[in-house]
Amino acid sequence: MVIDVRNLSIEYKIGNDYLEAVHDISFSLTKKESLGFVGESGCGKSTLAYALLNLLEENGRISNGEIIINEKDIVSATNKEIRDIRWKEIAMIFQNAMTALNPVEKIGVQITNALLLHEKISRKQAIERAKDIFNKVGISPSRLMEYPHEFSGGMKQRAVIALALICYPNILLADEPTTALDVVAQRQVLELLVQLKEEFNLTLIMISHDISVVAEACEKVAVMYGGEIMELGNTEDVFKSSNHPYTKSLINSFPSLYQEISELEQIPGYPPSLEDLPKGCPFATRCAYAQEVCFSEKPAMRRVNNDKLVKCHFAEELDFNKRGDSY
Rank of each mutant, 00 (worst) to 15 (best):
Asp4His: 15
Val5Trp: 03
Leu8Lys: 05
Ile10Ser: 12
Gly15Arg: 13
Asn16Glu: 13
Tyr18Glu: 12
Val22Cys: 06
Ile25Cys: 02
Ile25Asn: 01
Ser26Phe: 05
Phe27His: 04
Ser28Lys: 15
Lys31Gln: 14
Leu35Asp: 01
Gly36Glu: 04
Gly39Leu: 00
Gly44Leu: 07
Lys45Ser: 06
Tyr50Ala: 01
Arg61Cys: 07
Ile67Phe: 01
Ile68Leu: 12
Ile68His: 05
Ile69Arg: 02
Asp73Leu: 10
Ser76Arg: 14
Ala77Trp: 02
Ala77Gln: 08
Lys80Trp: 03
Glu81Cys: 02
Met92Glu: 11
Thr99Cys: 10
Asn102Leu: 13
Pro103Cys: 04
Gln110Asn: 14
Thr112Gly: 06
Glu119Lys: 15
Ser122Tyr: 12
Arg123His: 08
Lys124Ala: 10
Lys131Pro: 00
Lys136Trp: 04
Lys136Cys: 08
Lys136Asn: 10
Val137Gly: 08
Gly138Glu: 12
Pro141Trp: 12
Pro141Cys: 15
Arg143Val: 13
Leu144Asn: 08
Ser152Gly: 14
Ser152Arg: 13
Gly154Pro: 10
Gly154Met: 10
Arg158Tyr: 05
Ala162Pro: 02
Cys167Ser: 10
Pro169Leu: 14
Ile171Gln: 00
Ala174Glu: 08
Pro177Cys: 14
Ala180Met: 10
Ala180Ser: 14
Asp182Ile: 06
Gln186Ile: 02
Arg187Met: 13
Leu192Cys: 13
Val194Cys: 06
Gln195His: 11
Lys197Arg: 15
Phe200Gln: 02
Asn201Tyr: 11
Met206Ala: 14
Ile207Gln: 03
Ser208Glu: 06
His209Glu: 00
His209Ser: 10
Ser212Phe: 04
Val213Asp: 01
Val214Lys: 01
Ala217Trp: 01
Glu219Cys: 05
Lys220Trp: 10
Val223Glu: 06
Glu231His: 08
Asn234Trp: 04
Phe239Asp: 06
Thr247Cys: 11
Thr247Leu: 13
Ile251Ala: 07
Pro255Gly: 13
Ser256Lys: 13
Gln259Val: 05
Ile261Gln: 14
Pro268Phe: 01
Gly269Ile: 03
Tyr270Glu: 15
Pro271Phe: 00
Pro272Leu: 01
Asp276Glu: 15
Gly280Glu: 05
Ala284Trp: 08
Cys287Gln: 05
Phe295Asp: 04
Lys298Ala: 12
Lys298Pro: 03
Ala300Cys: 08
Met301His: 00
Arg303Ser: 15
Asn305Pro: 00
Asn306Gln: 12
Lys308Phe: 00
Val310Ala: 06
Cys312Arg: 02
Ala315Asp: 00
Glu317Tyr: 06
Lys322Asp: 11
Lys322Ala: 05
